[in-house]
Simulated assay, not measured.
Amino acid sequence: MRFLTSITPLDGYRLACTFDNGIEKIADITQYMQAEAFKPLHNPNVFNNVQNRQYYVEWLDGEVDLTADTLWHIGIALQRV
């Protein structure tokens, strides 16, 4: 099971994720935004108030969440030069 060491909200319903193994990924959660549970995240102030709970991220005191494993699987790794 993976866990997050940091999470940063980005424009376009994306999250910059750093995982416990040091890998950084950008996770685009647009595919979830049509679900009823994710509708509150259409408000940028709500989306930007994402909380890192290590094994998952949450918004609105747990009303909306995504696991670190989900973010890992949908995320695209950043290429370092």
Rank of each mutant, 00 (worst) to 15 (best):
I23H: 10
L71C: 01
V57K: 00
G62L: 11
A35Y: 10
T18Y: 02
T67M: 08
R14Y: 00
L71W: 03
Q54I: 06
Q54C: 11
T5H: 05
T67S: 14
A16R: 15
A37P: 01
F19N: 02
F19P: 01
T8H: 09
L15E: 01
Q34G: 13
I29R: 06
M1P: 02
D28E: 04
Y13V: 09
K39S: 10
T8K: 14
L4I: 14
G12I: 04
N48P: 05
R80D: 10
D20V: 03
R2S: 11
L4W: 03
D11G: 06
D61H: 12
N21C: 09
P40D: 04
D28R: 03
V57H: 07
M1D: 07
L78H: 03
P40N: 04
M33H: 08
Y13C: 12
P40G: 03
A16K: 14
G22D: 14
A27Y: 07
N49F: 01
K39M: 11
W59Q: 05
G22C: 05
N49P: 01
N43Q: 12
T5W: 05
V57Y: 08
T18A: 11
Y55T: 15
Q51H: 11
I29C: 04
G62A: 11
A16E: 14
I7V: 15
N48K: 15
I23G: 03
D61A: 15
L78I: 13
V50T: 04
A16N: 13
V81K: 08
D11N: 12
L66V: 07
V46C: 07
S6M: 12
E58I: 02
Q34A: 13
L41E: 01
I7L: 03
E58R: 07
G62D: 10
N45A: 14
A27F: 06
N48A: 15
F38E: 09
E24D: 10
D61P: 03
G75Q: 02
L60C: 07
V50L: 06
A37L: 10
W72G: 03
V57D: 00
L15M: 06
N48E: 12
L41H: 00
G12W: 05
C17K: 01
